[in-house]
Simulated scan of single mutants.
Amino acid sequence: MDLNDIPVLSAIGRRLNWLNKRQSVLAENIANANTPNYRASDLQPQSFKELMRGDLDRISLNKTHDSHATGTLQGENGGTRVKGFEVLPSGNSVNLEAEIVKVAETQINYQAITGLYRKQMGLLKIALGKSR
């Protein structure tokens, strides 16, 4: 059995991947804080619907009558970069204070999601009869 077959663990994995990508983008922004004409970027926020997208695609409604709705979902791409809004005279749009706040926010989210992962793994061990 693959752990990615468990919906909550699959969602946790997707969230960790998003946080990893965001941390890379933010590090790139900070590294280019003094580069002329560099435009800061960030990932679009990940919505719960997007986070559960893979699991919801596998779920289908049971249609017992022709007049029932099918309940189709359309996914969105959460990996698109968006431009910054504050630009220095050199053309650089990196605001170090804002980037540091984003890095700290990403770190807090990473710690929370890894804590959730540990709890889920503990529950699986209990369910399998293997105590800590």
Rank of each mutant, 00 (worst) to 15 (best):
D2L: 08
N4G: 08
D5C: 02
P7S: 03
P7D: 03
P7V: 02
V8F: 08
L9Q: 06
A11Y: 05
G13A: 10
G13L: 04
R15E: 11
R15L: 15
R15Q: 13
L16G: 08
L16H: 08
N17V: 09
L19S: 10
L19M: 09
K21A: 10
K21M: 10
R22V: 03
Q23K: 06
V25P: 00
N29L: 04
I30N: 01
N34V: 00
N34S: 12
T35H: 07
T35N: 06
P36K: 02
P36D: 07
P36T: 02
Y38R: 01
Y38Q: 02
R39L: 04
A40T: 01
S41Q: 15
D42S: 12
L43N: 04
L43T: 05
Q44Y: 06
P45N: 03
P45Q: 00
Q46K: 01
S47T: 15
S47L: 13
E50D: 13
E50C: 05
M52W: 15
M52V: 05
R53Y: 06
G54M: 01
G54N: 10
D55S: 11
L56H: 03
L56R: 07
D57G: 05
D57H: 11
I59P: 01
I59M: 15
I59Q: 14
S60A: 13
S60G: 05
S60N: 15
H65C: 05
D66I: 09
S67F: 12
A69F: 14
T70Q: 08
G71C: 13
T72D: 14
G75P: 15
N77E: 14
N77I: 05
G78S: 13
T80Y: 00
R81K: 13
K83C: 00
G84S: 12
F85V: 12
V87C: 02
V87A: 03
S90I: 00
G91H: 09
G91N: 06
G91S: 08
N92F: 02
S93Y: 08
V94A: 03
V94K: 03
E97H: 02
E97C: 00
E97V: 08
A98H: 07
A98Y: 03
I100H: 13
I100Q: 14
V101L: 15
V103E: 07
V103Q: 08
V103A: 13
A104H: 07
A104Q: 12
Y110G: 00
Y110Q: 09
Q111T: 09
A112I: 00
A112E: 14
T114K: 07
L116M: 14
M121D: 09
G122P: 01
L123R: 10
K125V: 01
I126N: 10
I126T: 14
A127F: 01
A127L: 02
G129Y: 03
G129Q: 07
S131A: 11
